[in-house]
Design a protein around this nucleic acid. Structure first.
Lengths: 131, 131, 131, 131
DNA sequence: GTGGTCTAGACCACG
DNA sequence: GTGGTCTAGACCACC
């Protein structure tokens, strides 16, 4: 499990957890039918309150990514992989789109935007810490 | 003034205002020495609580972008254009970087990230509403 | 045995089992003196954890519906049929009453409640799957 | 405000709150555009923890019944009345249907079910405590 | 003032 | 063991 949570990056922790779990399913790091780590396990792993993990797991149930296995834990649904792949594109695309739109509205020309993106890509490609 | 504020996009309104004003200065839509609209005017224009505008203007004074002109209002400082141009690159770059990093951590390969970016660029380039 | 258990309908599985067994006794589908299926059999039949069936059987013993027959299993008591007929009316009536009361409290007039009931009766009367 | 909550009736408190608020909107006791009581007010009114109310309000936002008015509170959405009227029928109908189906599966004939319903209706019609 | 998040810890139902 | 609910209380951002 290579989950990593950063409090104070502006995004609620439960949201970071839910997103990362979706991405993990999309990447097939977690598969349909798998049991996700128990609330308590995950909470300890992330050094976070169990309630926070529970909230993330609850949201994932609402999204149809997890389903309860009474007394057993929570399981990745059959439909989850497809949904998560779609959502990954959607969620990441939305965030990129918002950033790019703000560039344009901020007065950067399309060329300047491309330059800035390339600059950032170069930065992130190099020695960045990646999970 | 073609400011546009979107409550519920996750970013605080006062921050949206401050950023947009910086960008306007960077783009020379507003110039050093110009008076900015009064808090009341701006608040009415944006259909926003005056306190929110006041907060944005306060932050901009702290950043040295605005300075009070006794009895007249707030004026764009002499140093603002340079500062705003630098900050624009920084602020927008940071947001792009965060989005791109999340793509990578979310399991997308560099190529997939480029594809997604190009897809988004195509979307935004076309008939998007731009200020 | 035409028991049917639905996890995730809000009611605990052991309760569904106990109720259905009581109803079966009330309907004389099971009679005084009959042996009920073993915990293992029933658990396999319902695709349910044996502990869950055991819990239901335990509750039924407390209610005086089942009694142990040393080395043989569990037997329906002599008093069970009468008790179950009474309890059936009570249990089902309670649930109906709760539902109807919520309708009234939810702002439906007595007439609207009757209409809604008739509508539901029509639905359930037709092609519903009944045991 | 005639909300009433009963812990230990099997249904989570936050759910009771959310349902009752939907019903209140359906009955036009609360109207589109109205501000609902603040989390703290409602919590005190119901003698319940504010977090519990917050959870109910959050669920109602997910359902599109409430929307945040930043710094002001939560407002009933424009679409809420229609949605709530539909949902009221759905939610109450589901509960009635479940109760009636259990009667039938429990071995009661259609006539016996009608008799039982009439008996319960007579009970509830009389001196029952209604809000 | 408002709602939102997070933590801490208790209790319960279920399997 | 599992998740779910509820309470209590702190802290924050926003308006």
């Amino acid at each position: 499990m290579l989950f990593h949570v950063d409090p104070g990056n502006g995004h609620p922790i439960y949201d970071q957890i839910a997103r990362q779990l979706k991405f993990a399913v999309a990447s097939q790091a977690i598969r349909a039918g798998d049991l996700v780590p128990s609330v308590r396990e995950m909470a300890q792993h992330l050094a976070v309150n169990p309630n926070t993990v529970a909230r993330a797991y609850r949201d994932l149930q609402v999204d149809g990514v997890l389903e309860p296995l009474r007394g057993e834990g929570l399981r990745v649904t059959r439909e989850a992989p497809d949904r998560c792949r779609l959502q990954r594109r959607q969620l990441l695309g939305d965030r990129l789109k918002a950033a790019i739109l703000e560039c344009r509205r901020g007065g950067l020309s399309p060329d300047e935007v491309r330059d800035l993106i390339n600059h950032v890509l170069a930065e992130t490609a190099s020695s960045e810490t990646l999970p």
